[in-house]
Design a protein around this nucleic acid. Structure first.
Ligand SMILES: [Zn+2]
Ligand SMILES: [Zn+2]
Ligand SMILES: [Zn+2]
Ligand SMILES: [Zn+2]
Lengths: 136, 136
DNA sequence: AGTGTCACGTTATTTTGTTACACGATTGCG
DNA sequence: CGCAATCGTGTAACAAAATAACGTGACACT
């Protein structure tokens, strides 16, 4: 009856197109890069991208990387704690690694609770050099 | 001999002005808000603000809030680990609380190390409702 | 004088994100 | 059926955030 889990089936045309662009990419994409990629599909204005992105983020299919002003497809869609996820961003190759560490999530929750802070969403973005780039 | 700790004494005129604006404010300020506040002091272009901000961040006197595109004066300048600090941002009143939790810092370092990731800087920004706003 | 460095100033441009308004499809009623 | 409410969409204009490009003056060191 109630269907809260959004799969690629539920998505509207524009949402599917944006989701497709993000899925195809091996790294994060800016809204305007997505727009450029979807010109041939009829996209003409930034708002079309941003509206789709808003929904996709809401559905838990996409994450926004605040420190990059960019977006990535979620690595493990369908899981619950999509508001408490961490990212490792390589400053050399641009690769993004999404990690879902339960200990970290709990720690952040505790930190917030201790301060009487009602936590809604946590942004954790680690910048550095990935193992592959360090080896090279 | 070696003096790496930057106080308000070392700052150039522009840096002092920007630092002053941030210190006066009780919340985060965007670069353009700072620019507007400093028009009477001779500021005319965004770049003047951004250059000062870059230095102030470098000196550890100011933090950038990635999820807000804004800047805050550091709460405890002079301390070491300015690359590993967390912020609680109230979505109601806009107040920002800077917290320096050692356990969290260690945890993030460990998380990175485990992935062979050379951590340079960590961004932790918690969004929610502060205790004051929750009470009201 | 010659060189390098650093802060500064100005203009223009790029990148990122939003506001405002209108249209069409769908759903849920009365 | 008729009608309102909702939602996704399309377009244009705009605002906000950040950078590029170029040049000036001050200072230190040689
Ligand atoms: Zn995810
Ligand atoms: Zn890498
Ligand atoms: Zn600080
Ligand atoms: Zn508050």
């Amino acid at each position: 009856m109630n269907e809260h889990v959004h799969t690629t089936q539920d998505l509207t045309k524009n949402q599917s197109l944006v989701m497709g662009a993000l899925s195809r990419s091996d790294g994060p994409l800016s809204a305007y890069t997505i727009l450029d990629q979807l010109r041939d599909d009829g996209f003409r204005a930034p708002l079309q991208v941003y509206r789709a992105l808003d929904k996709l983020v809401e559905f838990g299919l996409v994450h926004r990387l605040e420190s990059l002003n960019a977006f990535v497809a979620c690595r493990h869609p369908g899981c619950d704690d999509h508001e408490t996820v961490a990212f490792m961003i390589c400053e050399t190759c641009g690769q993004v690694n999404e990690i879902s560490d339960n200990t970290l999530a709990k720690q952040l929750k505790r930190l917030a609770t201790d301060a009487g802070f009602a936590l809604k969403k946590s942004t954790v973005e680690l910048r550095g050099i990935c193992s592959a780039c360090a080896a090279a």
